[in-house]
Each structure stands twice: as structure tokens, then as C-alpha cells.
Amino acid sequence: MRIVHTDQIIQNIKEMCIEANYQLSRDVEDCIRNAFDQEDSVLGKQILGQLGENLDIASKDFIPICQDTGMAVVFLKIGQEVQIDGMNLEEAVNEGIRQGYQKGYLRKSIVSDPFIRTNTKDNTPGVIHYEIVSGDQLEITVSPKGFGSENMSRIYMLKPSDGKEGVINAVLETVKLAGPNACPPIIVGIGIGGSFEKCALLAKKALLRDLNEAHKLDHIRQLEEELLVKINQLRIGPGGFGGRTTALGVNIETYPTHIAGLPVAINICCHVNRHVTRVI
């Protein structure tokens, strides 16, 4: 067994919350800057230019990229040869979030109860997903998720006969309904298969994948490419003011499913698609 102490987990999650909110990953930033070069709408191009400028100011002046610094979604891949020492793991993850959001001057956006809605004032709790994998390492991903785009996400329980066309229609309907609300240009994470909750989790995981990395299965990669073209043909454009850049990327994750079903979840993310991964 390899021992990992929760102090190490707290320290890393704290740093990752801050890093994610001040600096986008290379792939997302490159997509925004490339989109500027290719945009044909005057207002759309102006907005993409300002989004690039916004990224420069955020890293230079230590101002979060977006004021919605999100609900902290944390993925833990725990090697089955890892022993975690110290405090309770869930408490440790939330302590890391607490310290990150306080030390990083990040917004506290979490309310303790969906109806009573009292702000917890430290952005906890996060949403934590645990996965047991082989090996002796612990992989942590922190993905602060803004709710302007989260609110525009949807799940469809399609029939097997709906097939690929049904999936395409569901995605296009979701993107159209989101329109300017989700802060386009967006990134579209799609989960297909599994069960009701599994496809939602796959959609969230799809948002974590590098935008330059295509799906390893040919028919899924082709569907990603087809969807990106079709979404951009909607011409919602940057800010919803028209143009060719409605989405920067479409990532799909799939899983085996039931003979009777074709679940599809579409998780929309704005251009501030934040995620940081570290292996301890």
C-alpha cells in the first residue's frame, strides 16, 4: 500500500481551485484565439477579441476570468493500492475547496439548501465523484462549473430507434434553447448510453477532455465532428450576436446501455471551461 495523507490532498485541491479560475487550459485558450482569426461577423470578432483580452488581464492582474467561479466539481480516481491517512476524505476535499476559494479571492456561490438558500460563505460543499482504479496513485481533477451554462444543460431518454438522428436533434435543440444565455462560444459535453445518471456523469466528464483529443472510436469521432459543424451552422455566434463561432468543441463519451434505451445528456459549458488535473 502507498500512503497518501489528506494534508497533501487539501493543499493540492486548494491550489487547483485557484489555478483553474485564473488560467484556462492551453487547448481552450488556443480555441478562443483561433476562433478570433476565423470569425466572419464584425460584432462576433470584436467579442472574441475581448475574451482574449479578458484572459490576458485575468492572468496578469490576478482577477478571476469570470465572476462565476463555480460550484467545485471534484473527480477522484483512487488507486486501489492507495491508503488515505489523516482526516475523512470528503471533509479533506471540502477543506481544500474552502481554503482555495478563500485564499484565491473566489466567489462563494453555494447555498446550503435548494429552498432555504442560505449562502454557506465558503463555497462548500463541492460535488465529489469517486472512482476506484488500479495502481497506487491518486488522480484529482478540479472543475469549477458556472451555472449560466449549467442551467441550459438537458437530458433526453431517447428510444433506440431514434438513433444518431435523434441524438443530433437533441443536441441542436439544447444548443438553440441555450442561445445567448450560456455565454457562447460554448463547449458541448455529451454523454450517451448507460442509465439516467450515468449519461449525465459522462457528459460532465466529456467536458474535461482536451479539445485537441478526438474520441478513439471512429463513429463517435465522426459524430463529434458532424455536431460541431451543425452547431456552428446555427450561427448563434459569440455572445449570441451572430457568427460562425457558436461552439469551440464537442466532446462525447459513451457507455454500454440497456436494450430498451438511448439516454443522452448534454452538459453545456461556456467558453470558460475550467479544469485542472494532478496526480499524487
Partner: peptide, 12 residues
Amino acid sequence: VAIGGAGALLSK
């Protein structure tokens, strides 16, 4: 409408 997701720029 102000530009969504440009909070650092707008703060200036």
C-alpha cells in the same frame, strides 16, 4: 447586454 465571461476585463 455586457459580454458574458469577460469579468476581468469589465472590472477595469
